[in-house]
Design a protein around this nucleic acid. Structure first.
Lengths: 346, 346
DNA sequence: CAGGCGGCGGAGAGCGCTCTCCGCTCGCCG
DNA sequence: CGGCGAGCGGAGAGCGCTCTCCGCCGCCTG
């Protein structure tokens, strides 16, 4: 049948075929109350015979549930046009989150809808749409610190889970990785490897994850008796890693190890070291953060702190579904433990 | 209002406030027919005053449109559990497609829903769900050649656009890049650069894109009077590029250029060359295909054939929307022109 | 043996919207 | 001045589903 105007079977059709009422078919399909087991079978046969599939819109209309959750990618700094997105989407970070979400959502039969939101105007709209049942809840991915969206969602009483700790405390659940402990892992590793003069390239100072990595690294170094850690600030891009490494070495030429706050910058740093003729890891060791694909692509391959993004996203999805089922649930924070992946760069 | 049981305003509420009927409000909101301009304003004021947002489910129920399109990622070889997905999602390819789709969908106010489908059983289910209005149409991303899904969609008369030419001809629209001409670009470039002994690492022989790249490259080389192109077959992975390069060089040690059918393999090949002590591009040039992030991550950065994925995805979305608006539209193929991005590896 | 209770299935009311009718009003023409 | 047509707004019927309410029947208890 190549035509699309063939009316699809409805509950009514199934009911007629099964010789029961709509209500009974509905009960069977949704597994509600005790229905005579024989009828049960009769109904299912009719369902299969007709090829019936429940109409989602009709169901949502009455249940007020959509069976969909939204992945909201929020960028408070962009202005609705999309240059920023291309960069973000081509980052494996996005894909890993999507994969993790799907792995939890699919078994539950929940859909994932993508929502991008830039300017503030769009935010109000989004909240409205969400309230009106675009989705039962949302997983929020903020690209910038201090994003207002988590607060907006909380204010609207919408179910939501944020990936990554919000910059300001907001009454909304979130999942995160223990960035400070991850950085400490890197510090311990470098010290254990016998590195003596250890520097750091940090991320932006207004990003919580970045701040935690820096302070976690400094604290761990202090525990090893190193109170001063030479460092420069980057912005998580490849170029800033390249630049940062050059800066750092021009000021502290004798460093024999550098902790870089994310893999992309570390890869940039590695590029700089290559051009500067410094052998890695013989002369200088590099440790990154994220265990993104950049870590594997880097030459030499990057020792890095693994952030279990897929697991985090999956957990975010499960948490969100729990919140949807019980809206009065307390907001919680789930913090994952990072692990160190040792490769050739250290 | 932190509670969620506050009933949201309905058309009825807006109508009452505006002192008109539901029908009129509906007409104003949907911009249908001539409504008295004064009323128009009165209605919009009421809409804003109440904070009204149309209920999507109710609207879909009657219009039989969801305002959603599905991005169906289809992997005929996996079996419902998701190991395969993680690899795919962390590939920037996925993100670029999503970004491109969104750029076309967002202005049109269309949602994007993600659908993964593995085993064949899930396919039937998917088609059922789609027919029942999960989405108005779908953009299909097949991970394996000879995927049955495009055919299934065509058979069901569902609106769909496939990204990448299907292995077998299927009565469904698709967007693709001229893989053969892209490969020719690479060939022309290498010849123009004065390379004399040029080899190739191809992709899998059952993937249309891969086949086109190989044959396109060979044809272009033939035009330059080179009837024989030494080549080995890879499978698009980093490792197969590494292995392929070693094989190729052990058999043809004097090659001074290699065209590799995708960036990831090219990156692997570059790794092998590095370890073999062959200087790139001085001794041997490498050209990849895709202009993925791997091209930038590679050392030296990779000269590669750029596939305008974002544009292709955006066009797929627009085409799909056109098909949805006019289902009797003829199936079409839109083929994009690749471009050569020259970097340090050639 | 009568009354009551529990379990199962049906009737039917709506969920919030769109859209077809239909009737009213106004303007224009004969 | 009457009639007709065009245009605008309202009434109301559903879209396909869920779920409450109710009635029936059979079994158990007093």
């Amino acid at each position: 049948m190549t035509t699309d105007n063939a009316r699809l079977p409805t509950l009514e059709d199934v009911a007629r075929l099964a010789g029961v009422s709509r209500a009974t078919v509905s009960r069977v399909i949704n597994g509600i109350r005790n229905v005579n087991p024989e009828l049960h079978e009769v109904v299912w046969n009719a369902v299969h015979a007709t090829g019936y599939v429940a109409n989602r819109a009709a169901r949502s209309l009455v249940t007020r549930r959509t069976g969909t959750i939204a992945l909201v990618v929020s960028d408070s700094e962009s202005h609705d046009d999309d240059p920023f997105m291309s960069r973000f989407f081509s980052d494996p970070f996005f894909g890993r989150v999507v994969g993790g979400l799907m792995s939890a959502l699919r078994p539950a039969g929940v859909q994932l809808a993508l929502q991008l939101v830039g300017a503030d105007q769009a935010r109000g709209q989004l909240v409205g749409d969400l309230r009106q049942g675009q989705a039962d809840g949302s997983v929020v991915l903020s690209l910038h610190p201090g994003d207002t969206l988590p607060q907006l969602l909380a204010d609207a009483g919408l179910a939501g889970v944020v990936i990554g700790r919000p910059a300001r405390p907001v009454p909304i659940s979130h999942v995160d990785v223990a960035n400070d402990r991850g950085a400490a892992l890197a510090a311990d590793h470098l010290v254990a490897r016998g590195r003596r003069r250890i520097g750091m390239i940090t991320g932006p100072v207004d990003v919580p994850a970045s701040v935690d990595r820096s302070s976690g690294f400094r604290a761990a170094m202090a525990r090893h008796g190193r109170s001063f850690v030479p460092s420069v600030t980057g912005n998580f891009t490849y170029e800033s890693g390249d630049r940062g490494m050059r800066e750092l070495l021009s000021e502290y030429p004798d460093l024999d190890a550098v902790f870089v706050a994310n893999d992309l910058m570390a890869q940039g740093g590695l590029g700089a070291l290559h051009e500067l003729g410094r052998r890695v890891p013989d002369e200088i060791a590099v440790v990154g953060f994220d265990d993104s694909s950049a870590a594997l692509a880097a030459r030499p391959q990057l020792t890095t702190v693994r952030q279990p993004l897929e697991d985090m996203a999956a957990e975010a999805a499960r948490l969100l579904m729990a919140i949807i089922d019980d809206p009065r649930r307390e907001t919680t924070a789930i913090v994952f433990e990072p692990t160190l992946v040792v490769r050739a760069s250290s």
